Amino acid sequence: MKRLVDAGMHLFQLGVRAMSVEEQAVRDAHPERIHYLDARQICKVQPVHDFQLPENFPKKVYITVDVDGLDGAIMPATGTPVPGGLSFWQLIDLLEAVTRQREVVGMDVVEFAPIDGFHVYDYTAAEVVYKMMGLVDRARNGG
């Protein structure tokens, strides 16, 4: 994400629940391009489906979902399963809010690290992808 910001792109981080000193320094150095609503803030905001992007945020967006943004209790199958992340439905509500407001030109889900024998986490990651595709389709087709 730092490379994108360095290239002049805008970034909105939703659901970050842990950050290094270096990552915080990048955020602090680019307040005009890096916007954020961290997991702790999201858990205090009700309802999250009313989330609004800044008016001057780009009209076309790329969404990347890092599965470690989900709470470690529901998604430990990642490189950094930290407590205090988003619930599944908070994530879906935020994604729905973004797809209502902007044109999604691409998306991905990253940082999934399967755990042998624990298929619920595989299905959780797959369900996030499935829901994202449905939200984008509905936004594009007015449904």
Rank of each mutant, 00 (worst) to 15 (best):
R102E: 01
P114I: 07
L91M: 12
V120N: 08
H35C: 00
G79I: 10
Q46G: 07
A25I: 07
V45G: 06
V5G: 02
A77V: 09
G85P: 03
V109Y: 04
P83E: 06
H49N: 07
D116I: 04
E23D: 09
E127K: 13
G79H: 09
L11H: 00
V98Y: 00
R138A: 13
L4P: 01
P76S: 08
A39I: 06
F57S: 07
F51Y: 12
I74L: 12
K44T: 12
D66A: 04
A77Q: 09
P31A: 10
P83Y: 03
Q46T: 12
A139M: 00
Y36G: 12
T99N: 10
L135W: 03
V120R: 14
Y130G: 01
L91D: 04
K60S: 12
P58R: 10
C43R: 15
D68P: 09
K131H: 03
F88A: 09
M1L: 13
Y130C: 09
V65D: 00
Q24G: 09
R17H: 15
P31Q: 10
V65C: 01
A77I: 09
A73Y: 07
A39H: 03
Q52W: 04
Y130Q: 08
F57T: 02
V120L: 11
G142A: 08
V21H: 14
P76Y: 04
D38S: 11
F112D: 10
V45L: 15
V67F: 06
V45H: 15
E111D: 13
T80A: 14
E23T: 04
V26D: 08
V61N: 06
L86H: 07
V21Q: 13
L11G: 00
G8T: 03
R33S: 14
R140W: 06
H30G: 02
S20K: 15
R102T: 00
M75I: 06
M9K: 14
H10Y: 15
V105P: 09
A125Q: 06
G84I: 05
Q46W: 05
L11I: 05
S20Y: 11
F57M: 06
E103K: 11
Y123K: 09
V65Y: 00
V82Q: 15
R140E: 14
C43H: 15
D6P: 00
P58T: 10
F88R: 10
I34G: 02
Q13C: 12
V48P: 04
A139E: 02
A113R: 12
P31H: 12
G85D: 09
G142P: 08
K2D: 11
P31D: 13
V110E: 04
L94G: 03
D116F: 05
D137P: 00
R3C: 06
R40D: 12
I63M: 11
W89K: 11
G85E: 11
N141D: 04
N141C: 03
E32D: 15
F57L: 05
N56F: 15
W89I: 13
V21M: 13
D38W: 14
I42L: 06
V16Q: 08
